[in-house]
């Protein structure tokens, strides 16, 4: 069994401690770490130094795709493929095209938002190394965790452990990825 070290998991007692610890980890220069809490903690994005999500751009591309796609489709159908005279209105009846264009733009945008979120989060996922820690399950109840992952370029086991301990960790655990 090749047990690869996934990261160092540290437990904190309350959200304030988690926030301070996240700031310290951020200031130490780590990029690949994450915080886990039973509820959203205000100010955590700043404390972790997270940049704006790329999701907006994914949504924009999908929205524009829906917009142009809908206009092309309706123009093709109403003007080239099967023109029908509806109460003498022009075949290229732009105002009447708007509802369908709007709906398709919104539909593809929301697909972009949902599936883009799945993609960026790496979902769906059958298993995560953190679930190897039975203590970690309490993150859905009353405990707060930070995990610095071994993939981070700055990562060494001793330094990461020391940093988390200095930040006031209650327990420290090594998490292995056993597969």
């Amino acid at each position: 069994m090749a047990n690869k070290l996934f990261g160092i998991l540290a437990e904190y007692e309350h959200p304030g401690a988690l926030l301070k610890a996240a700031e310290k980890v951020r200031d130490a220069g780590y990029q690949k770490f994450d915080t886990y809490s039973p509820f959203p903690v205000h100010g955590m994005d700043d404390a972790m130094g997270l940049k704006n999500s790329k999701l907006g751009w994914i949504v924009l591309v999908h929205g524009l795709l829906g917009l142009t796609g809908a206009l092309t489709m309706i123009t093709f159908m109403a003007h080239f493929d099967y023109p029908v005279n509806i109460s003498g209105k022009p075949f290229l009846n732009w105002p009447a095209f708007v509802p369908v264009t709007f709906e398709l733009t919104v539909l593809l945008s929301s697909f972009g938002a949902v599936f883009g979120m799945f993609f960026l989060n790496g979902l769906p996922k059958h298993h995560h190394p953190l679930f190897n820690s039975s203590n970690f399950l309490r993150t859905t109840d009353d405990k707060f965790f930070i995990c610095i992952e071994s993939e981070d370029t700055l990562f060494t086991e001793d330094k990461a452990t020391q940093l988390l301990k200095d930040a006031g960790a209650v327990t420290i655990e090594k998490i292995y990825d056993n597969d």
Partner: peptide
Amino acid sequence: AFSQFMLIYYAN
């Protein structure tokens, strides 16, 4: 604004 316009335009 567009809803108001389009319904009136389309019903004619």
